[in-house]
Design a protein around this nucleic acid. Sequence first.
DNA 1: CAATACAGTTAGCCTTTGCTAAGTTATTTA
DNA 2: TAAATAACTTAGCAAAGGCTAACTGTATTG
Lengths: 159, 159
Amino acid sequence: MIDTPDEAPFPSLSEADALPPSEQHAQQYAAVRNAHETELLEDYVELIGDLIVHQGEARSADIALRMGVSQATVSKMVGRLKSLGLVASKPYRSLFLTEEGETMARMSRERHAIVLQFLRALGVSDDTARIDAEGMEHHVSQETLDAMQRFSRQRGIPD
Amino acid sequence: MIDTPDEAPFPSLSEADALPPSEQHAQQYAAVRNAHETELLEDYVELIGDLIVHQGEARSADIALRMGVSQATVSKMVGRLKSLGLVASKPYRSLFLTEEGETMARMSRERHAIVLQFLRALGVSDDTARIDAEGMEHHVSQETLDAMQRFSRQRGIPD
DNA sequence: CAATACAGTTAGCCTTTGCTAAGTTATTTA
DNA sequence: TAAATAACTTAGCAAAGGCTAACTGTATTG
Ligand SMILES: [Mn+2]
Ligand SMILES: [Mn+2]
Ligand SMILES: [Mn+2]
Ligand SMILES: [Mn+2]
């Protein structure tokens, strides 16, 4: 049997980091699963809000086009958004955000903008920054957002 | 009908950013959907590799504990990993990574480490950095990884 | 104003990712 | 070594998020 000392004589530089305690580890994954539950809702309400601002109204066909999914998929998702009280609409008519939907949209938009600006300030190209921000935004805590904002303000491109 | 000028006389400072062209916008969301398809696979192989290194073997019960899911969920996922050729095992025995699994685990682990180190270098606390890195890692392009690594090396905590 | 085109919905299918409950195999210990 | 415990698997269920095909309603326009 190979001799396994209780404590290494000195820590090797190439030694891999130890695993975190399992409860903490589990919490990491739980936070990710949690984010996944609201991600799409956030992107939908954000997009609906943006369409209302930029095009005057939010129509399912536009959402489908911009999301890159079928209209049927949008229709089903809109049903879910309505049942969650985030969106209001009459059959065959365009979409509106409820108060709650507006709030979620505003928060998502702000968070999205912070992440995007941060990536640009880091030196990432615009196209890549947009792609990465679309996914990263949902996995960024307030603490990290604050750090990003500090960084952007300090050495970022103005505006 | 309301008069809509072809071009605004001058850009307002508080004007919201225009929406990206719809094809580009759709590509952003497509990239996120794409990342979601491999995310869990990456976390599983990474964890299996880590367990083998740190505990000598990877057992389903450990994975379930660390992932924070039921053993049944792990069992089903392991079936998928095997069918994808990432994992090998005999019924009721512990798990091994195939060559392909090792490769995916190594890449995931490296990417994960870059993101984690970067967040710490940005000034984010360890606990938060771990949580955010677990989700962000799957949505970070090579270009962004490079930028993160540059930043960490330049003003990061050494090691 | 009728025909057509466009927009929205519904039905039915699939995959992924989770769960619980019940069974099977392996390991530990009395 | 038999019983008990722990580990693993299987079956069956559900929700989320995709799809296509078929249908219904709205808007345009000849
Ligand atoms: Mn967004
Ligand atoms: Mn997004
Ligand atoms: Mn990881
Ligand atoms: Mn992860």
